[in-house]
Simulated scan of single mutants.
Amino acid sequence: MSDPRLALLASPTESARDAEGRLRAAYHFVAPQDADIVIALGGDGFMLQTLHQMLETDQIRPVFGMNLGTVGFLMNEWHLEGMVERIAAAKPVKVTPLRMKVTTVSGDIHTLPAINEVSLLRETRQTAKLEVQVDDRTVIPELVCDGVLVATPAGSTAYNLSAHGPILPLGSGLVALTPISPFRPRRWRGAILPEKTRIRFCVLEAVKRPVSAVADQREIRDVAQVEVANDPSTPLTLLFDPNHTLDDRIAAEQFIT
């Protein structure tokens, strides 16, 4: 794309706002709805926030992130100079989100996207008790745990990795089903499933043992049932410098000791 129209978004941190001012003084930007590509300044949390806003408004654009946060796994390095040239040379990476459908104890229904993971977490000191179904087949009648999560390849190095789940290469067509502090079954450490798999969690004793469901950063409390499936209808595109792409970073994580 020659001379793409660029929009600029920044997190509210001091460093990101300072970088925003420097970029606006050096380059021309348009409103996000008029842009071909969005520049995002911040950390991974701000990148997820930006992508979720695009999904909610149906204004999906490729995003080139520059890290002005803490980890910046989904971001490129921050540089003022050469931004147009970097974007022209950037490698696109497609990320397919999950779709979480939640039914609460009171009967309310919520549907939310998740780019990294969907997680179920106990709300109180009581352990959660969950029935786990895969493609309408019960695979674990009663999982006693602090919680469980379903992670995409892009999210497999985040919460999933902290919960001792597997790292999944981008483009693998897989999702990770990972328990969080499982008590029973004691030896179950999770599963790797095709991304087309439909996963359902039924909360047992939902009133006595309340459970919340979280899609990336958005939480629904007191859930009775959660369905998770891949959503190929809304692919997202992240742009990376060719020498340090997201799939390279995910592969490298497997060798960090």
Rank of each mutant, 00 (worst) to 15 (best):
R184M: 13
L149I: 03
V139N: 05
P169Y: 10
R209T: 01
L177E: 10
D216V: 05
R137C: 08
R221C: 09
D146Y: 00
A114D: 04
R189H: 14
E117S: 10
P141V: 13
K129S: 09
Q217L: 13
S156N: 06
L193Q: 11
F183D: 04
T111F: 11
V211G: 00
K208G: 15
R186M: 02
L174S: 08
R200L: 14
R137I: 12
V214I: 14
V134L: 05
H164V: 12
L112G: 00
E131S: 09
L177R: 03
G107E: 04
C202H: 14
S156T: 02
D108V: 07
E195R: 10
L170Q: 07
R184E: 15
T197W: 00
D135P: 01
S156M: 10
V139Y: 11
L161K: 11
I180G: 00
H164M: 06
I109C: 05
V132K: 09
V223P: 02
P153Q: 07
S181K: 11
P182N: 00
C202E: 15
P113R: 02
L177H: 03
I109F: 01
G165S: 05
I167V: 14
I140F: 05
D216K: 11
L161A: 03
E117N: 08
P166Q: 06
V207E: 14
K196C: 10
L120V: 08
L170V: 10
I180L: 14
A158L: 04
A154F: 11
I109W: 13
L174W: 09
P210K: 01
Y159V: 04
A213S: 14
I109L: 11
L204H: 07
T138Q: 14
E195Q: 13
A158N: 01
H164A: 15
G173T: 03
T197V: 06
E205W: 01
P185W: 05
L204D: 12
S181W: 08
L168C: 00
V139F: 06
I220A: 10
I167F: 02
D135N: 01
S156H: 09
L174C: 04
P169A: 15
V118L: 02
R186L: 15
